[in-house]
Design a protein around this nucleic acid. Sequence first.
DNA 1: CCGAACCCTGTTTTT
DNA 2: CAGGGTTCGG
Length: 697
Amino acid sequence: MTQSDYLCDLNDYQKEAVVSNATSLQILAGPGSGKTRALTTRVAWLVKNKDIPSSSIVVVTFTNKAAKELKERLDEPHLLGSNLSNGLVIGTFHSFCARMLRKHVDLTPLKKNFIIADEERSRNMVKAIFKEHKSSLSPQNQKLDSEKFRRWISQEKNKGIDSIAYKSLYKNDIEKMDIARIYCAYEKQLQDENMTDFDGLLLHCRDLLRNNSALVDFVEHVLVDEFQDTNALQYDLLKLIARAGEKSITVVGDPDQSIYGWRFADKAHFVKMTQDYEGTVIVNLKESYRSTKHILSGANHVVSKDDKRTPRQLFTNNNQGVPISILRANTDTLEGEMIANEIKRIVELSDGLVKYKDIAIIIRMNFLTFNFAQALTQAEIPFIVITGKRFLDLLEVKDILAYLSFFYNHRDLSSFIHLINVPKRGLGEISIKKIHLLAIEKNWTLVETIQNIVDKHPATKGMRIMSKAILELKRLLDLQKQVQEKLDKKESISDILQCIVDSIDYSGYLEANYQSDYQVKSANIEELIAFARQQDCEVSENEKGIDALGRFLESVTLCGNLKEQEEAQDGKVCVITAHAAKGLEWTCVFVAGCEQGIIPMERSADMDEESRVLYVAMTRAKCFLYCTYAAQRKRWYGYQQTVFTNLLRDLPVTDYQRQLPTWNTEVRFWVSQVLRLPYKEDGALLLEDHGDEDGDK
DNA sequence: CCGAACCCTGTTTTT
DNA sequence: CAGGGTTCGG
């Protein structure tokens, strides 16, 4: 078979990974070693050289962003081109599972039109259940808050233990039976409302595949991105999809970048995989193209704190660069100013090499954003804060989505509770409870129940609900019917949203309840409708109506950030958490707040993971890396003394400096080399139109 | 059922 | 200090 030209640009390690015939392959990819390139090229190779139809290839990622990026890369003509890539199954674990469950819903405990409960719903649900069961719990457990229980439940689910299994597993443990009771009640509630949560998608899908293995007959090869982030349940799922080695599996990842332990991810799955799949081949992408030697060496020092770690041989042929700048400020405000000043200096002195968009401030915790947002605003530096807050988590968006959700799934109690007093309708907890209980007793949906209450059905005799409230319920029903009609007529989701917003006079509600934020919130609603309109265009004719609504709700739950990506570049400095920054890179990076208690975080369960978080943050930098800290930081109120992080305290002296990097012709020259930008021999740069050096376009 | 007054706790990271 | 929770009085 002739070597195709798309393999030419690869280095030896990458090539070995791409063309491996192993049925079980691990690609260990350190920061900047061409992970995405190896993965996408391997997919192209499987299709083009091994004649595997693209529809038999499944690519799983953890984030929507990663899925999107892979898809875009594969669409490029020199890899697959959009023709060949079309049939690929590519998406997050959650979207893959959701797709399977919808398609084979009859084989699952879920009912048609099930919806996915996001975290807030799940939280509210557990909170309510906890409250209800509180008195019957052991004294210790009564003192805990519902959030603890939710986490325990989630943990069990991600271990693959469902409520029934949990109950029987711990039937002799009084403390754990408290959890079991809440777990079971929670699951029952989900089922009653025809819902499942994020974890449930995976768990249900596992059961589905376990009992119906033929459903994944179509799969020839499964590829997994960021494998270090897999938890036990996801690992089981992969095993089911790959039929435990019968089909081929390729995983790509980096144990050193495993920073999701708190979400039950376990990098030990790399080892487990070699045990579970005989003849697993491991390829190490040893060359890093991203950072200078100084940065790589400093980062390596940090991650090596973990003595249980297998050492790596990551090297770079990049320039030595300058030592990492470790900068101290007296207060957090001054830290912000210091960074702002340095950003200005870089942009000025780099002579066009480094622009605002090439700079990031990476932080460990979201509450630090405020500090830097303020400093950057004051310095008039354009910036964007990537909060990780999802668009759909905005209250105003949820208000409207609750209506949509309720009209889609008539058993959706949590949406009903959410929407019933937005705007105020004079129904309190008691009335809602009555409606809920009646619905359960008669096995009516909530919509049917309300209908019967309004119609004064004999069974509702004993219900004492205020006449004003009855009137409001009637109006709600009218809206529901109107929406149903629109769905039957297959009208677009955006029109339906608009109809809901108008009919409940939502802007009036916003105006009355939020004086200052009113306009922002209205704009967000506009944004939601615009997003729906965009989705409307992508839906095929025969899928309109109720199914389109289901798809819309699913995509909006599973993919929280609708807009952040595009905004990210655009000539702005980026303020971002280490977790959100994984997979990204900038010419210049400030890792801010390098203090004991912040990095490593005070009550982190796993200190080794903390060093990996810092490792990830540091390895985002290509040319310049600053680690900054403030001797005093505002905590909740008042200032607190801080100390420099232990993780960086013993960096070898050659690896850091306590001053700002110098800029001169020589520096600009090696920077242009590391960035792979065009230059002249004499060091004068050709900077016109070098385009987007991040290479992700 | 609602709002005002009061008490408490307490700052991760996110599909 | 703030935001969520609880209590109490209309």
